[in-house]
Simulated scan of single mutants.
Amino acid sequence: MKVSIVYFSGSGNTEYIAKKLKDKLEKINFNVLSLDINSETNLKEDTDLLIIGGPIYAGNVPEKLIRWVMKNVPETKKNTKAIVYSTSAGLMNANGVHSLGAKLSKKGYDILSKETYVMPKSFYFGKYNENTEEEIKTMVKNVENQIEELVIDINNNALKEIEVKTRGILGKDLLAETFSIMAKFMGKNFSVDDDCIRCGLCVRQCPQNNIVLNENGIIFKRNCMMCTKCIHNCPKNAILYKKEKYKQYRLNNYL
C-alpha cells in the first residue's frame, strides 16, 4: 500500500506525529511518502491512503493548510482512503479534523478516521502556562499508544469509512480565516534582542516569508501566522514576544 502523509507543523508537534506514523508504517513494509507543505507541493496521484494533519489555531487547522488541501490535493474517482489528524493542547476546540475531512470527502476520498492528539503547549505567551515535564511525558506516552493503535488498525484493514458531516464547516473555516488576519497584526509583537547573531535561521524557516534580515537586522513584516517556529528554533533564544523572552519549546528534550 502506498501512503502519503501530508502535514503543516509550526513548533514540531504535528511533524512528530507524521514522523512516528511514517516510521511505524515503514517497519511493516508500507511504502510511505511524507510531505511538509512548506517545502513540497506535489502529491502523488497513485496514493492508496492519504493522511493529512495540522495543529489547531483558534479552533481549526491553519488557513494555510486548508488552502493547500483545496489547491493541491487532486480529486479521486477510485475512492482513495484518507485519515485526518490534528494536534492541540486540548480537545475542546479541535475542529480541524472536521474541516479537513469535509474537504477531502468533497474531493472523493473515503474518510476512515479523525485522529485528535493532545500534545504539549507550544504557545504559552501571556496568560497561557506551559506544561510541566511530567505532563509532557504523560502526553507523549498517550500519543505513542494512540499512534500504535492506529497503525495496527491500518495494517489489519480494520478502519471503515465514517460519515462526514458538512454542517458548521463554513463557520469553522471562518475561524481559521479570522485568525489568519489577526495573526498578521499579532506578529508585529515579535522582535529580537542583543543575543541575535543574525544567522538567518528564522528567515529561512518562516513558512510565510515574514522575516527579513537586512542591514538593520531582523525585521518582522505583516504576514505572520503565529506558528512560533521562529521563537522556538532560534539558536540563541533571541526572539521576544511583546519584549519578553520565553522558554523555548523543544519536544525532543522530552523524548
Rank of each mutant, 00 (worst) to 15 (best):
K71D: 12
K71H: 08
K71F: 03
N72H: 14
N72R: 12
N72M: 05
V73S: 12
V73M: 13
P74N: 15
P74G: 06
E75F: 06
E75N: 12
T76L: 04
T76G: 04
N79S: 06
T80W: 09
A82E: 03
V84N: 08
V84Q: 03
Y85G: 04
Y85E: 06
S88L: 02
A89F: 05
A89S: 10
G90M: 14
G90T: 08
L91M: 09
L91E: 07
M92L: 14
A94L: 08
G96C: 05
H98M: 01
G101L: 01
A102H: 08
K103N: 10
K107F: 03
G108P: 11
D110I: 07
I111D: 03
L112H: 03
K114T: 14
E115T: 00
T116C: 15
Y117M: 10
V118M: 06
M119Y: 10
M119V: 10
P120W: 05
P120S: 02
K121V: 11
S122G: 11
S122Q: 06
S122C: 10
S122L: 01
S122Y: 07
F123V: 09
G126R: 07
G126V: 06
K127N: 12
K127T: 10
Y128E: 12
N129G: 06
E130L: 05
E130I: 10
N131T: 11
T132D: 03
T138A: 01
V140A: 02
N142M: 07
N142V: 05
E144F: 04
E144I: 02
N145D: 13
N145A: 11
Q146V: 02
E148N: 14
E148T: 13
E149M: 09
E149A: 13
L150S: 08
V151C: 08
V151Q: 07
I154Y: 01
I154P: 04
N155P: 03
A158R: 15
K160H: 14
I162M: 04
I162Q: 09
V164D: 00
K165A: 05
